[in-house]
Design a protein around this nucleic acid. Structure first.
Lengths: 339, 339
DNA sequence: GTCGTTTTTGAAACCGCTTACTAAAAAGGG
DNA sequence: CCCTTTTTAGTAAGCGGTTTCAAAAACGAC
């Protein structure tokens, strides 16, 4: 009993004894040239038939889908999820839909998704670039498709980009550690294979801050390692005599490994090693001790990204795309001990 | 310089010196009645023009959008996110897109989203029902739109539903606690205003299990409270003489509050109170001590939901919709102490 | 060479809605 | 009262594909 009784605009028109175009005018709120009685009748017919317009047909004609594509490199990061949420909220206010895709850092997947979404005629893209897809991005620009990057900078491409001030985030941590008397500070960071803006900027920010405290020669420890090997690696490194008293986890996923390392070495956080994390995790604030964290301004970033995209969608390409950085927020808690 | 040079199938046809319909046949892989040379030419023209079909137009004609709508009641639960991920993966394999919407438990929002997605002609819905929208769901059924519920049961509606075996989850916790010698056990649970399947089932599962251990009269403590007031409420309750030695957090968000409560009361987990959580959080395994958790089988649930939906989409409505329950997984860690 | 088949291709309608453009009706003015 | 204007409503041509169905071409066999 497939009762596909799809009511169309023609049905409404017939029911109201009026023409399609007039109904269409009504739907698009172009009441100017329309009698009050006509409006009335249309309203009734629509209600009577339970009509709702087919967005597909509208989009086909108008060449606008009121849908944007959002492509995220790594949805496992809480930060990504938060930005997605904010963007979705901003879009909902404008009755715009969001299709979210996760590339797992795979440029191939990214390309596939972009093409799928393009075929679906999305009106714009917000992308956390997986990297190494410059040609793909350039095509989007050539086709004049609105585009905003988030979290990562793609060099030499005139695209609005909005991200955390990562150098500042690292500097905040270093400054706090030194204020608490720490002179030997480590950074745990996942591999910097491709140019991953946040990682490399946090690293450089870390280095610069250490230099400004004149700690870069003997007080700086950089632990660059894959997440799966991080805990063991740290365990090994901390057997050495030459080790830091404070450790900065460069993101949420790294923090998990750092805490794992503390557990397996039975190190007490604070007493044996002080810790700060970039990214605030749900349980960090109630951890034992609560983990001092540097929160990324996900809401500000998401809002700005949406705003920039909407501008491009409404007013055409921005004249001069820029990089927009937002300051992280320092959440002082109990995982750093003065020495 | 809006160079909207949208290549259409007509352009390809012209370029190849052939008719639209033949190109269309080619695109749909109906090669049977098509000369090798024709195929060749089409292939070349497509490449030369960089053509890619407009999915909108196709969908309009075919009345299929290869897109499903996923409506989640509360995206703050890690469980929701995991299910979304699994569903997305399953869909990608079939080149189906997913549009995710978050209702924040608001039936109004849910209705709005369903209607938007319907207007967009999605091929099916996976819904975490916010509740109290029976009429809306019934309309979907009447229109013969494929529909699967996740996480929550809507009574009296012939719809496939897949969720965690929540009673079992609660029972697992109670059994473990009692095995460890606990005779006074509490349950922290958010308010049970509407019928929220997981909450109420976890509560009833808890009660039944307690009964089976003959602990329901004097050993059972139920702390039903909103999340924002939970920590203070527990603090107050634990001042009393009559309090449990073990506490079950009914979900991830509740666990945060429970841990918060432990911190502010400076209670040591294990020694002062044993804890189990339903839902496994990212940091739970490296918490101090690691929190014994009962993980919901999100992957199994997501896969099954997708599978059921695909069946309905391909073969029409299932003959006899059913409720599919999946067993949670007990993760024994260190937050329960024997007494 | 004619005719019957089998392959291959093309014309045209259609999906549901928008949007000029046009025609009709109503109103206004001299 | 007739001719302009102004309102209001209707016609028809797309948007970019799919799909039906008939026509053309190719191929043999007689």
């Amino acid at each position: 009993m497939k009762h596909d009784k799809n009511v169309t605009i023609a049905d409404v028109a017939k029911h109201a004894g009026i023409s399609k175009s007039t109904v269409s005018q009504y739907l698009n709120k172009r009441f100017e040239y329309m009698g009050e009685e006509t409006k009335q009748r249309i309203r009734q017919s629509i209600a009577a038939l339970g009509y709702s317009p087919n967005v597909l047909a509208r989009s086909l004609k108008q060449k606008k889908t009121f849908t944007i594509g959002m492509i995220v490199a790594n949805i496992l990061h809480g930060f990504s999820t938060q930005v997605i949420r904010t963007v979705e909220d901003a879009c909902n206010e404008q009755d715009i839909h969001v299709i979210v895709c996760n590339t797992d850092e795979d440029p191939q997947k990214e390309q596939k998704y972009v093409q799928m979404l393009e075929a679906k005629q999305v009106d714009g893209f917000i992308i956390f670039p997986a990297g190494d897809n410059e040609e793909l991005y350039r095509e989007l620009l050539d086709k004049n498709i609105p585009l905003v990057f988030v979290d990562r900078i793609v060099p030499d491409l005139p695209v609005n980009t909005v991200l955390t001030d990562n150098e500042k985030a690292a500097a905040m941590a270093v400054d706090y550690f030194t204020n608490c008397g720490h002179r030997r500070i480590g950074l745990a960071v996942p591999p910097l294979k491709r140019v991953m803006t946040p990682r490399s900027e946090r690293l450089s920010g870390f280095q610069k801050a250490m230099e400004s405290h004149e700690l870069e020669k003997s007080g700086m420890f950089i632990y660059e390692q894959s997440l799966s090997a991080m805990a063991d690696y740290l365990s090994a490194e901390f057997q050495k005599e030459d080790k830091p008293t404070a450790l900065l986890a460069s993101n949420d996923l790294t923090l998990i490994e750092v805490l794992q390392f503390c557990r397996q070495q039975e190190m007490e956080i604070g007493r044996d090693v002080s810790i700060i994390s970039i990214d605030d995790m749900p349980l960090a604030g109630v951890y034992n001790p609560a983990v001092t964290s540097i929160e990324q301004p996900a809401a500000a970033i998401g809002e700005k990204a949406a705003e920039l995209l909407f501008e491009e969608m409404n007013e055409g390409k921005e004249l001069s795309p820029a990089v927009h950085r937002y300051s992280p927020v320092f959440l002082e808690r109990d995982s750093v001990e003065t020495r």
